[in-house]
Design a binder for these strands. Structure first.
Length: 201
DNA sequence: CCCTGATTCGC
DNA sequence: GCGAATCAGG
């Protein structure tokens, strides 16, 4: 099987793509590979995003044709490694622990062993459940997240709404001492990674 | 090494 | 049409 690419998925692809998410990021959120994302994006015709490379000018055929080099200045949409939109999704708040984004990848979910002690990781709620993202997000999370310097944020960083969308925002309530989330969301956040039926419908 | 996106080509 | 494989730059 290839992938259904229903109107829905295509719509999401378009949306995420437009939001400036990286192909890999989109792929994760759509549970497909980045290749699939790129390929589809091409076929869909959308794709004016900054490419890190410029594949050699087409073999043969007008090699010295209108090769205007054209270093077409890219919009400031470029940040650095990691997804630009992802940062945009979780800005300003300087959360002690990066809130997982919405939608859980059906795969690539290297089930983070249920730690004996609650650790900020798996917000698993019903709808708009910000699910834990393994892969490199995990790596990042495993790093000095402890960060002795920055204490917890002054506001709950539980994500509400879809990152990137206008309505997206963080809870903002007063978080528990030492926790990035408020009392209510902490309960959701520190679930033991059990039934987190992905909503990735 | 990691990441990124782009293209090719068998399916 | 699809996307893994491959390529190529950072």
């Amino acid at each position: 099987m290839a992938m259904e690419w229903t109107e829905e998925t295509i719509a999401r692809l378009r949306d995420l793509w437009q939001q400036g998410l990286s192909t890999a990021e989109i792929g994760r959120q759509l549970s497909v590979t980045k290749n699939a994302v790129v390929g589809k994006a091409h076929r869909l015709g959308l794709k004016p995003r900054p490419s890190p490379i410029r594949r050699a000018a087409k073999t043969a055929s007008a090699p010295a044709a209108t090769t205007a080099a054209s270093p077409a200045a890219e919009p400031a949409v470029e940040s650095t490694p990691t997804t630009p939109a992802a940062e945009a999704a979780a800005p300003a708040v300087t959360p002690a622990a990066p809130p997982a984004l919405q939608k859980a990848p059906a795969k690539a979910q290297t089930a983070p062993t249920p730690a004996p002690q609650p650790k900020p990781a798996a917000p698993a709620a019903a709808e708009t459940a910000p699910a834990p993202r393994a892969t490199r997000a995990t790596k990042a999370a495993l790093r000095p997240v402890s960060e002795p310097r920055r204490r917890s944020s002054q506001s709950c960083c539980w994500p509400l709404g879809d990152p990137g969308t206008p309505g997206f925002h963080f809870c903002g309530a007063t978080p528990l001492p030492g926790k990035p989330y408020c009392a209510e969301h902490a309960q959701l956040a520190y679930v033991k990674l059990r039934d987190r039926r992905d909503n990735v419908a």
